Simulated assay, not measured.
Amino acid sequence: MSFWQILGRLAVSDTGETLQKLSDTTSVTCDGTTYTKMGSTTVGSDGSVFTQMGNFSTDGSTRMGSTATGIGAVFNERDDWPNSGAGASHAQKRFGIDDDTW
């Protein structure tokens, strides 16, 4: 399983893959696979389907703050994507890693 570092609207894996968030519902990988989010389900142009359950995904991946295992974990609720100037995300606050706790 790959490990992903989430950097704002970009996620980079330990294998060099990248995933860029284009909008609240659309993300694209470096190989051209497009992921579309519809509610708690994300569908990939490669035929993959993920369902999010908080910080977990049906592909067995999980996310804590800005680190994730597996590509499904980067598809969390909009509030879980870190965005500059907007304060800590819901997930970051839950795990105690927002700016106010450091």
Rank of each mutant, 00 (worst) to 15 (best):
V43C: 05
T15P: 00
S23C: 07
T62E: 06
N83M: 12
G85I: 15
D14Q: 00
F56Y: 09
R63H: 02
A11H: 01
G87S: 00
M64I: 11
G60F: 06
W81P: 01
M53V: 13
T36K: 12
T36E: 09
S66Y: 05
T42E: 01
H90R: 10
G70L: 04
M64C: 11
V74H: 01
F56S: 14
V74N: 07
K21F: 09
S40Y: 00
P82D: 04
D80T: 11
A68C: 13
L22S: 05
D24N: 08
F50S: 11
R94L: 15
G70Q: 06
S61G: 15
V74R: 03
W4L: 08
D80G: 14
T42S: 12
T67K: 07
F75V: 07
G87R: 00
T36C: 02
I6Q: 03
R63G: 04
V28E: 09
D46V: 07
G85C: 13
D31S: 14
L7G: 10
R78H: 10
G60K: 01
G65K: 12
T51A: 10
N55L: 05
D79W: 08
T36H: 13
T67A: 09
F75S: 07
M64L: 14
G96V: 07
E17W: 03
G60I: 05
S23Y: 07
L19M: 10
Q5T: 07
A86C: 04
G54M: 08
T69F: 07
T42L: 06
K37N: 05
A68Y: 08
T15I: 01
S23P: 11
S89C: 08
D24Q: 09
V74I: 10
F50C: 03
Q52G: 14
L22H: 02
D98F: 07
V12C: 03
S23R: 14
A68I: 11
S84C: 01
T26V: 14
G96D: 10
D59S: 00
I6Y: 06
W4G: 12
N76I: 15
A88M: 12
G65R: 15
L19K: 06
V28F: 03
Q92I: 00
D24H: 05
D79E: 13
R9S: 14
M53W: 13
A73D: 08
D98Y: 05
T29Y: 01
D59N: 00
T25C: 10
T34H: 06
D14F: 01
E77R: 06
T33R: 14
M64N: 08
D31I: 06
T34A: 03
T15Q: 04
L22N: 09
C30K: 10
Y35W: 06
S84V: 12
L22C: 04
A11L: 02
R94Q: 15
D100S: 08
S66F: 04
G87N: 00
G44D: 02
T62R: 02
Y35E: 00
D31V: 08
L7D: 15
S66V: 06
Y35K: 01
P82R: 07
K21Y: 09
D59Y: 01
S2V: 12
